[in-house]
Design a protein around this nucleic acid. Sequence first.
DNA 1: CTTAACTTAGACAGATCGGTCTAGTTTGGA
DNA 2: TCCAAACTAGACCGATCTGTCTAAGTTAAG
Lengths: 189, 189
Amino acid sequence: MAPRIAARTKLLDAAAQLFYAEGISATGIDAVIAKAGVAKMSLYNNFESKTGLVMAYLEARHQEWSGLYQARLEKAGDGADGVLAVVDAYIDHAEAGYEHGFRGCGLLNAAAELPAGDPGRSIVAAHKLQVEQLLAGHLASMTTKKQAEALAGQISFLLEGAISRAGLEGNSALLLRARAMISDIVKAL
Amino acid sequence: MAPRIAARTKLLDAAAQLFYAEGISATGIDAVIAKAGVAKMSLYNNFESKTGLVMAYLEARHQEWSGLYQARLEKAGDGADGVLAVVDAYIDHAEAGYEHGFRGCGLLNAAAELPAGDPGRSIVAAHKLQVEQLLAGHLASMTTKKQAEALAGQISFLLEGAISRAGLEGNSALLLRARAMISDIVKAL
DNA sequence: CTTAACTTAGACAGATCGGTCTAGTTTGGA
DNA sequence: TCCAAACTAGACCGATCTGTCTAAGTTAAG
């Protein structure tokens, strides 16, 4: 492993845990480098600033979710199973960070800390829009285009609401409840 | 009006605007007192600490929503109109803070900044649970208890998801979309 | 008018913030 | 083996953070 990658990876891992658990502005640079076991200059050699680290964090969370989704998608097919692959990717994510305290969607939490107009918010908005479009794609083969888009919106709202509520409760129970709802909706088509 | 109340009110108003627009940890004490036009000691005479101000802020947001809901409820009846009163209270809130930049649910945004186990998160969780119970109450007269609870969960997820997504977009369009969905669901009973 | 509660402006404290810099060490590849 | 790139520890900077304190001014009720 190349050493440059090592420091950057250690920093991103440490930032991911701290940003998610404590919030972004509540997490100082010093806490990140201490957890990463890395010198402060290594942070500024790999990232332009704390803001740059935050942007990389947002990108990494998006990539992480995409990975979970792809893994679920390979085991599933298109149509109803595709829709549930999206849902299960959320559940996988929820139960992954469970022991460290599940606190909802990291991207949504990050956006909540950023002022209106911040570029980070656009990344999150784009991610959520992509999820809705993935749902619409899976639904396209099951109904009319119009209804597929309407259902994709509805399911994405259900998902986002469930993950927020589940984060407040600290466990994935409400997410499983949402999965059952979504499964019913899709199977009724 | 008693002067003691004046300072406290000015502080809560200023904190509400700044906390909502910029986030809580990104908002310093000095910014709050400057916007309130009040001396720093007035803050610490009325609140134990910044944390105390944050707690009062959470309580005030909960009360504010309850006020909007009560106003909507008086104009509406029970049953389907009661459910839509809950939804319209959200919409009223969204469009109230619209010009200053709509950024989603203030309580959910605040919770996103607080670490797991923080008492503030419990306040938010209780608020969201109450909303779901209000929905269940309105639905109780329209269907079985079991289905009323299931629908209340589904509608509360839809609402929370829609307000989060709408906050990312910066306008209330997605909330109106959710209102139409919920209206359809309730009217189909 | 007097008095006590509340207010003000602003200095001040100690801690922490993000970020820079230096100087020396480790490391991987030619 | 040697060199350049990456890494280390930690001092240091100015700004900002929450919170305390003082001293003087305002206000309302008795």
